[in-house]
Simulated assay, not measured.
Amino acid sequence: MSLSVRQSKLGEDPNLASLVSQILSVADGNRDGRVSLPEARSTWALLQMDEVLLGLLLQDRGHTPRLLGYCGDLYMTERVPYGPLYGLSLPWPLVSWVPGGLQRAMDQWFTPSWPRKAKISMGLLELVEDIFHGTYGSFLICDLAAAHFGYTDHHELRLTNTRVMVPEDEFRRSMQVLKCETDADCVYGVDCHTSCDSTARRCRVEPLQPNLAKACGALKDYLLRGAPSELREELEQQLYSCMALGGNAGQMNMEHSLILNNLKALLWRQISHTKDS
């Protein structure tokens, strides 16, 4: 069961032993050290939902709400008290009347203090780090909208909608068979883009932007609003360098790690000594 789930949903890269151990731990509902037939059937039904499997893989790192219990394909997770990450939900009649610039400004009105925003942002950066060639393979986040994230009373980020994640192997397989006329045809989900090979009229498989670049774009206004004056210029430079990352760069792994570590270090220097963090 565990092997087929791994291959069909996550590809060939994930750490098999770790994944099987994780699934068996969940399946042993009464903690008697064995998985009975009813427990196995219930777990099998649960794991047919991609969002549950991905949530399980990330919950030990604190990125997703913890699974509290389940029966077949019905399940319950811990409550995430604050969400979305930022932004206001305007009544639909007002949306078309409010200019985009004003909407973006309003999104940042009701947010925590800056040190707490920095801690929440660190959580998103750590999520990106953990799914970039991580224990269970590589994943892309194909919709980084604030609505898919929340945070706890301790200002720890939670990914509340794992449906926005896709294993990179699955993404590549999907794009490989996608016909195209222009780059605009090569989109997976909301914002996972590749380019169009105009000769073959097929989408290329390399994503144009890594998760980190999109995460920095999502965090730019969130972090710059209210940032300490002595930090703002350096923070802005690092965020723009991060947003400029491309998916096809020859030094992708090195650049990714360098920019990620520099940004995390900058934020940590500012919040490590504050009680708000």
Rank of each mutant, 00 (worst) to 15 (best):
residue 1 M to G: 10
residue 4 S to T: 14
residue 4 S to N: 12
residue 6 R to W: 13
residue 12 E to R: 15
residue 12 E to V: 12
residue 13 D to S: 14
residue 17 A to H: 11
residue 17 A to C: 06
residue 18 S to N: 09
residue 21 S to W: 12
residue 25 S to L: 09
residue 30 N to K: 08
residue 34 R to H: 10
residue 36 S to I: 04
residue 37 L to D: 03
residue 38 P to V: 01
residue 39 E to R: 01
residue 40 A to Y: 07
residue 41 R to G: 02
residue 42 S to E: 04
residue 43 T to R: 02
residue 44 W to M: 05
residue 46 L to G: 04
residue 47 L to S: 03
residue 49 M to F: 01
residue 51 E to P: 03
residue 52 V to T: 04
residue 52 V to W: 02
residue 54 L to D: 06
residue 57 L to P: 11
residue 58 L to Y: 05
residue 59 Q to L: 05
residue 59 Q to S: 15
residue 59 Q to K: 10
residue 60 D to S: 15
residue 64 T to K: 00
residue 69 G to D: 03
residue 70 Y to T: 02
residue 70 Y to I: 03
residue 74 L to A: 10
residue 78 E to R: 13
residue 78 E to N: 06
residue 79 R to K: 12
residue 90 L to G: 02
residue 90 L to W: 12
residue 91 P to I: 08
residue 92 W to R: 14
residue 93 P to D: 07
residue 94 L to P: 00
residue 96 S to G: 01
residue 97 W to C: 04
residue 100 G to V: 07
residue 100 G to T: 06
residue 101 G to C: 09
residue 102 L to A: 07
residue 102 L to V: 14
residue 103 Q to M: 05
residue 103 Q to E: 02
residue 108 Q to L: 15
residue 108 Q to Y: 07
residue 110 F to W: 12
residue 111 T to Q: 03
residue 112 P to T: 07
residue 113 S to L: 13
residue 114 W to K: 04
residue 115 P to C: 12
residue 115 P to W: 11
residue 115 P to I: 11
residue 118 A to W: 08
residue 121 S to G: 12
residue 122 M to D: 09
residue 122 M to S: 15
residue 123 G to T: 05
residue 123 G to E: 10
residue 128 V to Q: 06
residue 130 D to H: 14
residue 131 I to L: 09
residue 132 F to E: 15
residue 134 G to D: 08
residue 138 S to H: 13
residue 140 L to E: 12
residue 144 L to N: 14
residue 144 L to S: 10
residue 146 A to C: 03
residue 150 G to T: 11
residue 151 Y to A: 06
residue 154 H to K: 12
residue 154 H to R: 14
residue 154 H to N: 15
residue 154 H to G: 03
residue 155 H to P: 02
residue 156 E to K: 13
residue 156 E to Y: 04
residue 158 R to Y: 07
residue 161 N to G: 04
residue 161 N to W: 06
residue 163 R to C: 09
residue 165 M to K: 06
residue 168 E to H: 04
residue 169 D to C: 05
residue 169 D to Y: 02
residue 171 F to I: 03
residue 172 R to N: 02
residue 173 R to F: 10
residue 175 M to W: 03
residue 178 L to T: 13
residue 178 L to V: 00
residue 184 A to C: 05
residue 186 C to K: 03
residue 187 V to I: 15
residue 187 V to Y: 01
residue 188 Y to N: 08
residue 194 T to K: 10
residue 195 S to H: 12
residue 195 S to M: 01
residue 196 C to Q: 05
residue 197 D to F: 11
residue 198 S to L: 11
residue 198 S to G: 01
residue 198 S to P: 00
residue 199 T to P: 01
residue 199 T to A: 14
residue 201 R to Y: 05
residue 201 R to M: 08
residue 202 R to M: 13
residue 202 R to L: 15
residue 211 N to Y: 01
residue 214 K to E: 03
residue 215 A to W: 13
residue 216 C to H: 06
residue 216 C to K: 02
residue 218 A to T: 14
residue 231 L to N: 01
residue 231 L to D: 05
residue 235 L to E: 09
residue 236 E to P: 00
residue 236 E to Q: 12
residue 241 S to K: 11
residue 246 G to R: 15
residue 247 G to D: 10
residue 247 G to M: 06
residue 252 M to I: 13
residue 255 E to P: 00
residue 259 I to A: 00
residue 262 N to S: 12
residue 265 A to G: 04
residue 265 A to P: 00
residue 268 W to K: 08
residue 269 R to G: 09
residue 271 I to V: 14
residue 272 S to H: 11
residue 273 H to T: 12
residue 276 D to V: 00
residue 276 D to R: 08
